[in-house]
Design a protein around this nucleic acid. Sequence first.
RNA 1: GGGUGGUUAGCUCAGUUGGUCUAGAGCGACUGGUUUACACCCAGUAGGUCACAGGUUCGACUCCUGUACCACCCACCA
Length: 915
Amino acid sequence: MLPKAYAPKAVEDRIYALWENSGAFRADVKSTKKPFTIAMPPPNATGQLHLGHAVMLALEDIFIRFNRMRGKEALWIPGTDHAAIATESVVIKEIQKKEKIPDPRAKLGREKLVQRIAEFVEKSRGVIRSQVRKMGASCDWTRERYTMDPMLNRCVNEVFAKMYKDGLIYRAERVVNWDTALQTTISDDEIEYVDQEATLYTIEYVGAKQTGGKPILVSTSRPETKLGDSALAVHPDDERFKHLIGKTFDVVWPRGQTIRVSVIADHLIDPAFGTGVLGLTSFHSKIDYEIWQRHRTEIPSYPLHVIGEDGRITDQIKGYAGMKALEAREAFVEDLKKEGRIAKEEKYVQPLSISYRSKKPVEPLPKLQWFIDVNKRVVSYRGKQMSLREILQHVIRAGEIKIIPSLFEKTYFQWIDHLQDWCISRQIWWGHRVPVYYCSTCKNPDGTPLELISVSTEPYTVHELCGSRVEQDPDTLDTWFSSALWTWSTLADPSLADDFSLSLEEILKRSPDFQKFHPTQVMETGYDILFFWVARMILMTTYAVGDIPFETVYLHGLIRTREGKKMSKSDPETMIDPLDIIPKYGADALRLSMILGQSPGNDSRLYEEKIAGYRNFVNKLWNASRFVLMQCDEAKIDPKTIAKLPDSSALALPDRAILSRLQSIVEKVTKGLEEYRLSEVGDTLYSFVWDDFCDWYLELSKGNANTAVLVHTLRKILQLIHPYCPFVTEELWSHVKPADAGLLIARPWPETKEALRNEESEKQFLSLIGVIQSIRKLRADQGIEPAKKLHVVLSSKKHAKLFEEQREHIERMARVEKLEITGKKVKPANVVSAFLPETEVYLSLEGLIDKAKEIERLKKEKDQAEKFLHAIEAKLQDKQFTGNAPSKVIEMGREKQATTKAKLEKIEKQLKALS
RNA sequence: GGGUGGUUAGCUCAGUUGGUCUAGAGCGACUGGUUUACACCCAGUAGGUCACAGGUUCGACUCCUGUACCACCCACCA
């Protein structure tokens, strides 16, 4: 016998082991079944499983389990990401704190530090693995991958080499986003903007004496950067400054810094902003750098580097060198004030760029970096020459990839429109090292060291042509470069990683998994990494493999706190840790609470009561199964032996009705899951189980259960809910499954049986329910205690026979002692009444009726009915309506009119009788 | 500055191409109930002019326009 309440803790780990040992998670590459593949978004190898992962795992597990049961060869590849910057900074901080080493990079050196990080990651990955299991994720652990695996590393190198050869990867000096805290560049997408109150200073840049007229004023929010200017820019048509264009001035700043600036004209300058003159800070602003590049020949003096990588003023700047940028700003402004050169100070709100990683301000600095060109039209995709940007647009426009919810397509296109070349090199040590080597003697025509590419992981030290030493580029690649290959680098045969005689194309050709399982079917992830990751997978995969990485993108929303705030580590009170929840409520309940009542792309709130609510549902399912088993025991029938349903003519009404209803549910659930409408399907199952199955069917079955139908229906329910609640359903399945059936996870998906559909029975069932409900309601309205037995008269021409057949049910469920059923009109006195379509219900209590209460209730009901009738009649009399509305709608209106009219008449009659 | 989404019962949210919606669910509230599947339960009740203002339509929670408030994303006005 099953225990009274479901205890997930006692079940889940055992069931998971059962699944895993059964081989059910493993996909067979030789199978002839159609593939269904998901590449699991790899959690960062640093951390702990959080709700973001939990919702991802729950959704993907539902997709996978459903498709596995439907007969697809389902493959779900798990893995972890080395998470370059995030991991390196975590480990460095740990070393700083625990070992009191202020600069671990300097102290340990590259090799040792990388070793330390690798050790840390190895530990962390083990934690992640066990946490993924706790959620019930049915992924193929035999194919687990890690972004730093040799094969994945090989893929990174191969793609880099290919792009380099195609001229899509290039090295150039550009103003990039420099994270002064982490000492590395970051990409444009890794920048966040925070509104900040700033001061716009208007500085007297060039005195009136020098111009021979008015002084030149410049507005800036970063005065300190002006210390290294080499030009002033104005709009070419700005009459105020036309006479200055082409002139050169010497500017002496406080503390002795002297610069020579030339006045240039550029269309980008907005004459209306500030003074209309821009101090061109070439090295500390992307736009200034661009303008400088355009006008370099007109600007004789070379701009200065004002701020260094450490965020301090460089020693090129007299008087302020060594100060932090902000300190220098204050000092400089103070000095200018003393000289009377601050003409204006205005407060305004300015978006400040901060690093997504370190949350510290980003310093734009000119640096020699590696970039991916998104505009060069050298990529052949589906037989057409396109740029990477164009392919990104094409695959969505052409419908090769579908995004759910579709409104994110708009965001996606907008992002592409703004897309600039992607800076892929990072100045950190943890990650895939740029596979470029520089020859110490050979030079390019422009004098830069000769670049040599090597995809091999073996040491490459000597240039084979000249015999000189070669040195590898010290930088590593953006994490997203390797994760962009994830859908297919994980499918490449790992045993080929060291065979350098093979090209990437050949490797893929010889990788059975890739041939069978790529492209993948769904990419499911949070909308917050649509640009970081999803778009980049599309970009890199279409380029490298010539095909899409996935057919459908399903984006889930963020899980927020009860108050709608983001959960954050810094505020542990608000955090819900899946690992606390699972032992308490079970993984199934957690899964339901994150999926039901949500829609893709929208954030949702999660809190304990919600989870408890779904725990209750899981428990309900548990107890319904207990009930079924008890019925079977009574009948001395083993549920495991029940194989066939009796002929439908031999079935009672509730049996026919529930079987019929089940068919619609199977159909609805199947279709809904095919279309990724998980929340809706979940709700459907929830109410089918609780309302239809438990509250009505099981209750009606008490005492006269048809065990075959009970067991059949329960089995189907367990199958249908299994993708949502794998643990509890698998456990229950073991008690009710057919004798020859294996695990539920491997069970085929239920199919609809048209022969079991029976609309008439469902309608009759509803009439029966209606009668029981209305008797219960009358009793409650009258305040009659439940123990009190009732005398009820049912009058229904249409249903008299039906009610007679179901007499026992009505008597028991509504607690009726004396039940009269008649097909004739009746005129009982001293009763309370309810009027259903085709049926009148009278409850008599011999003088106990509270007349006033009943009259009041009837009047209220009459009011309502009258209002409704008026509305409907007005509609039906409106020729516009009858002329335009479809006949179905009109017919429905007529029906409603008739039933309401009939009801109203009865209410009136009853009112008269009472008064 | 550009864009997107939201605004439906006290709370959290569903509502599929406009008409079986006289707008639903869960939680909470209230009334009553220990009838051996389940108190992690059962029976029942109350509670909404679907943010606001216009428009389209025979008909709008659903489509269009505008307003307000709340989120979010993007952005090289120094």
